[in-house]
Amino acid sequence: MDQEYLMLRDELLHLDSVVNNTINFFYVFIASFIAFALTQEDTIFILLSYIVIIPAYLIVISKMQGICKIGAYLSVFHEGGKFNWESRNIKFSQRHVNIFSYIVSSNFPFIFVSAAVVILFLYRTQWDTFSLVYEKCKLCSGFLLFLVVLVLAYKNRNITTKDYIKKWEDI
């Protein structure tokens, strides 16, 4: 039992490092790509940054859910005698409410970068040629992609260990 607990805690640490590395690589790539896209005439290059934003965001959400599932498993099946981290962390979180009680902090980079991309896209759009179907399609695509990120953020705004404890207790 102790070995399983320690192995799962190691997996938690691994998933946490995957989340942090994904966000770091995301920032580096987006900064480089946006610098490139701003040198181009066509604003479609700015919108192409969503090819990285959405998959990176989905990876982070998946890993955050994995972290919470493992934390809930540990809380239900392993805590009591020696190990009580998850239960104590839940109690601590209930007593100390802050902004991250309402939204997972890993959502912020993707929401802010997505908003920045839309703002840059709108700024760089050539409004004198807006009557073209191509420009209208890009504008609709930009808002649709931004909406996808906002919906993902809303649906995953509060991923916590508590969400999975009841599911593990039912097993």
Results as ranks from 00 to 15, higher is better:
residue 1 M to Q: 13
residue 9 R to E: 15
residue 9 R to Q: 13
residue 20 N to W: 08
residue 21 N to D: 13
residue 23 I to T: 11
residue 24 N to R: 15
residue 29 F to L: 06
residue 30 I to K: 00
residue 32 S to F: 09
residue 33 F to W: 08
residue 41 E to S: 10
residue 47 L to K: 00
residue 47 L to G: 13
residue 49 S to G: 15
residue 50 Y to V: 05
residue 52 V to M: 05
residue 53 I to Q: 02
residue 56 A to K: 01
residue 56 A to D: 10
residue 57 Y to P: 01
residue 58 L to F: 01
residue 59 I to L: 14
residue 62 S to I: 03
residue 64 M to R: 15
residue 70 I to Y: 03
residue 71 G to M: 04
residue 76 V to I: 11
residue 81 G to H: 12
residue 82 K to Q: 11
residue 87 S to D: 04
residue 87 S to A: 14
residue 87 S to G: 09
residue 88 R to V: 07
residue 92 F to R: 15
residue 93 S to F: 04
residue 93 S to I: 05
residue 96 H to S: 05
residue 97 V to N: 11
residue 99 I to C: 08
residue 100 F to Y: 13
residue 104 V to Q: 12
residue 107 N to A: 01
residue 108 F to A: 04
residue 109 P to Q: 01
residue 111 I to Y: 00
residue 113 V to L: 02
residue 115 A to G: 13
residue 116 A to M: 13
residue 118 V to N: 05
residue 121 F to W: 02
residue 124 R to I: 05
residue 130 F to N: 00
residue 133 V to I: 15
residue 134 Y to S: 05
residue 135 E to Q: 13
residue 136 K to M: 06
residue 137 C to S: 12
residue 139 L to P: 00
residue 140 C to I: 14
residue 141 S to T: 15
residue 144 L to H: 04
residue 148 V to A: 09
residue 148 V to T: 09
residue 149 V to I: 09
residue 149 V to K: 06
residue 149 V to D: 00
residue 150 L to M: 12
residue 151 V to Q: 08
residue 153 A to W: 03
residue 155 K to M: 13
residue 161 T to V: 15
residue 162 K to D: 03
residue 167 K to R: 11
residue 171 I to Q: 14
